[in-house]
Nucleic acid binder design. Structure first.
Lengths: 145, 145
DNA sequence: TCAAGATTTAGAATAATTCTAAATTTTAGG
DNA sequence: CCTAAAATTTAGAATTATTCTAAATCTTGA
């Protein structure tokens, strides 16, 4: 099932953009859609390629602009897992990223109540945190054995 | 007090390099020393600049080579906090990184027993994890208020 | 003492991101 | 509806970060 129908997601997007002082634009919607439609933590480059399918004239600079706007609106997270390109993730629930150092796959695992509580050092005002778990995914672990 | 005296750190370095299939070299020692001497999570560029003070002929490619070797030997961690340059950290204890989005300062906070337990998804073989906490450091939080 | 393999080096090449300036779009006010 | 101001988009240049390459140098073990 595709998250295609208008209204809900789109309203959310418009509202959040507005709150952040940004305008709604078709490009921002397109970029957000790309992230929602395939949640494989794409890089900006990959988002660009996918967005071009529906919007052939979109430019790389715009993709970065859109991604940055979405990040500032708390609709999308930036994820840094390795040297090189940043990835983007539209899942705003508390979760960790599991990264396979062998094949590069990334997946989310929700953080439930008791797991992962970070210390609160005096005076530091926490905005958010990112947990990246490195290792071998089930498939690669099996192959290596 | 500087961690200058030979033997201990140096032995550890030699041993770890050996285990990882690497040779001990003065450059690797120098790069490791730079990381130990000022634990402010420098980028490769910063390591390069500092290393050159004691070893003017060292090259950037060597700095990367040394950092990579140290990372593979579990003597150093790579830390990705923002878009852009990777940082390096010689603290191998379990800890989180607190990053001030305003001024860019980074500091470590040890993870004590009860804090931060990541889920163990079936089949995934965890190698290590990185926790990055974003927000405002005490100083910047104060100024903003 | 020598050959093989590892490491270093400078510089070129590539990749990722940011910047720039002009064109376009959108918005609010009249 | 019309217009000026502000935001956004665009292509391409510029910058930054990292990787690659090939030649020179250093180990190391036979």
């Amino acid at each position: 099932m595709k998250a295609s129908g208008h209204s809900e997601v789109e309203n959310h997007l418009t509202e959040r953009l507005g709150t952040g002082g940004f305008r709604f634009t078709p490009q921002r919607q397109q970029v957000y859609d790309v992230l929602l439609q395939k949640r494989d933590h794409p890089t900006a480059e990959e988002v660009f390629i996918r967005a071009k399918q529906a919007m052939p004239d979109i430019s790389m600079a715009t993709v970065y602009n859109c991604l940055d706007a979405l990040v500032q609106c708390d609709l999308v997270r930036q994820v840094q897992l390795e040297r090189g390109a940043t990835r983007f993730c539209p899942n705003m629930e508390e979760h960790c990223h599991y990264y396979c150092d062998e094949c590069g796959t990334v997946f989310d695992v929700a953080l439930t109540g008791n797991s992962a509580v970070v210390p609160r050092p005096k005076g530091f005002k926490i905005d958010h945190y990112e947990i990246a778990v490195h290792g071998l995914c089930a498939d690669c672990a099996k192959k290596k054995k």
